[in-house]
Design a protein around this nucleic acid. Structure first.
Lengths: 225, 225
DNA sequence: ATCATATTTTAGGCATGACTAAAAATAGTG
DNA sequence: CACTATTTTTAGTCATGCCTAAAATATGAT
């Protein structure tokens, strides 16, 4: 078993790897909230354990075993998030912080029991895919809501869970995964967009619309008029 | 917030205090599985934080605040045990070990949610009382099953959860809390006893019978014949 | 009461994982 | 290409919580 700290580093590296190709010391430092020097010394340790490869000044990359562990932690995290939401009614803006703690103390047995109780789910409350037990992660093709043209509509695939305030904000509009949303208008110069969700319309800041991802994009009604 | 280590020490001191009056360095050392010297240095730290009083070579005692924290940890532990058993079907011999980890990461919010989901319970799966949120613990009057005379019967109040093997052993006989058990015979020289649980009889070692506690003791049928 | 034994404490170390400050390597700009 | 700014690493510290070995204190038997 690895320490909580190691699990967090591996998870963080995996998440950065997913969006920026090159995983730098600074990016890990920022995301994890530790000093860059602390990252370097941990990278040395992870290299020795063959969980990452690390060329001095050149960033890091997870090895097979390293990625396996990262995915296990992420599986724990997302299963717990969903469990807390479904079984205990924890609001979706709170499940992330709780899962950050639980992910490290979840036994394999309890993982299985939760998985079963939830009916072997594939998505967490924010729409992120839950890795399978053998470490397979199926990413859903999706684009940021902010990129949709007026008249286009899409189905919410995923909402970034990095900020509870954002989740509460978009949650109030009903922007949950699986919900269809139509873009009515887009203000220029990265201005707000007007959207329609379940027959009521809302104004959404472009910043927030960057963190809401949609799939299944269709031309929408305005194309037909 | 206190460290996991501090929480474990306080919980352990509370548990020893409950059964032996004087809490010695060695008893803490054994129960916690750490060297006596480690205990001494932790006692120094807990004294400075006013969580215990400590006279050199004279044992320790929890202060009010120290006991409060101990009871919070125990409340977490027992609530989690019951939750795991009820909600996820974890067998009663496994809940203790899982709860040892969960008790330290349970937020107040989740504590409340579990408490509510369970219907504000007062006993964990082993029959131990769950302290209330304000730190009140109601001990049930009970005596070891081994002290019952042939013919007497009682209701299982509590089974020690210190050994999973014991729990599996007595569980197979149906010796769960709230179950009535009758002592049919007692072999001399601390020999095994014969018991009747739900119309089937079993032989129980005296060692095990020491860890099963009963209440509501009645003379039983053999007194009437 | 004394002396051996058991208990507890002190002293000194070690691993983990964080930090700051300073040095080294890289990247960007004229 | 040189020079500055940024990034990364090294060096040295620190707190936590554990350890062993040795010293101090307490306990119990004669």
């Amino acid at each position: 078993m690895y320490t909580e700290s190691i699990e967090n580093y591996l998870k963080t590296i995996f998440e950065i790897q997913k969006e920026t190709e090159k995983v730098t010391t600074n990016s890990i430092s920022e995301k994890l909230g530790v000093a860059p020097a602390s990252v370097t010394s941990m990278m040395k340790k992870l290299s020795e354990k063959k969980l990452i490869t690390h060329k001095r000044y050149q960033g890091v990359k997870l090895t097979g075993p390293g990625q396996k562990i990262a995915l296990e932690v992420i599986r724990h995290h997302r299963l717990v998030e969903l469990y807390l939401a479904e079984a205990l009614g924890v609001p979706w803006d709170q499940v992330h912080d709780e899962a950050e703690k639980w992910e490290h103390v979840l036994s394999e047995d309890l993982e299985d029991r939760m998985d079963k109780a939830l009916g072997y789910p594939t998505r967490d409350p924010h729409g992120s895919p839950i890795p399978s037990r053998d470490g397979t992660l199926i990413e859903l093709e999706s684009i940021p809501l902010v990129e949709l043209q007026p008249g286009q509509s899409g189905v919410i695939a995923e909402v970034s869970d990095h900020d509870p305030d954002l989740l509460r904000y978009v949650g109030k509009m009903g922007l949950y995964p699986m919900t269809r949303v139509e873009v009515l208008s887009v203000e220029p110069f990265s201005g707000p967009i007007t959207i329609k969700v379940e027959d009521s319309s809302h104004i959404l800041g472009s910043q927030a619309a960057q963190y809401v991802f949609v799939t299944d994009v269709e031309p929408g009604r305005s194309e037909l008029t």
